[in-house]
């Protein structure tokens, strides 16, 4: 009777499924399969590190306001860090994506890991784009003017108005980072839960296939 009741509790159900899919040994392992031995494996973590620098510099910029960097040397430096860490972020993410594609890293029921990663890529482009719109300089004036036609052409402009500075700054510093942060977290947790995808030719012998 008491066991029955415990089984039916949502809390214990969640705890059990959590412990099953992602025990702390899987979350923070101290070993990796022997095949995890290539520089290509560093580009995921490099992307995360860049995201860390982006968020840290972005928080400083958020506290000082969108125009700060025009007149403060410190502000310009922090803005530069935000700018260059975004470049690093995309470079590392693209190399990571290429690497995972050629490893066919979606094998072994890892489809959702690929999907969350690809969605994070698209969300990153949207987030970066709104950042370019709130530089409060000529570049953002022009980008907003030019980009409005694309969004208007398919009706998105009716709700997502790139020439509305207030809307863009809120999306850039609140909504989109939350979306990107959550997707990234899910992506990383899925990688940990499922483990690093084994080599394509790893199981040929067991499957009776010649390579």
């Amino acid at each position: 009777m008491s066991i029955m009741q415990e089984k039916e509790m949502w809390t214990s159900k969640l705890r059990k499924s959590w412990q099953k899919t992602l025990p702390v040994e899987k979350l923070l392992p101290d070993t990796q399969p022997a095949y995890v031995a290539s520089w290509i494996y560093l580009f995921g973590v490099a992307t995360l590190a860049s995201l860390g620098v982006i968020i840290a510099s972005g928080i400083v910029l958020a506290f000082e306001g969108a125009s700060w960097y025009h007149y403060s040397n410190v502000g310009h430096f922090i803005n530069s860090m935000h700018f260059w860490s975004v470049q690093f972020f995309f470079v590392f993410m693209v190399v990571h994506l290429w690497g995972k594609f050629w490893m066919a890293a979606w094998r072994g029921r890892r489809l959702l890991t690929w999907i969350t990663g690809a969605v994070a890529f698209v969300a990153s482009i949207a987030t970066a784009f709104t950042g370019y719109l709130i530089q409060t300089n000529f570049d953002s004036q022009w980008i907003s003017y030019e980009a409005k036609d694309g969004f208007n052409s398919v009706g998105i402009g009716s709700r997502f108005n790139v020439t509305n500075f207030g809307q863009m700054i809120l999306l850039h510093v609140a909504f989109l980072p939350i979306v990107l942060g959550v997707i990234t977290m899910i992506h990383v947790l899925m990688v940990r839960a499922k483990g690093v995808v084994p080599p394509i030719d790893a199981f040929n012998a067991e499957l009776g296939e010649r390579k």
């Binding site: 923070l28 101290d30 620098v53 029921r109 890892r110 084994p198 790893a202």
Partner: peptide
């Protein structure tokens, strides 16, 4: 087979150290 937890050889791998190093380098 590809989905099952890896049962072959492993190597020591310090994820946290790797992450901190990446953060410092970037």
């Amino acid at each position: 087979l590809e989905a099952a937890p890896w049962s072959g050889r492993t190597r020591r791998y310090d994820l946290i150290k790797e992450g901190v190093a990446a953060l410092v380098v970037v």
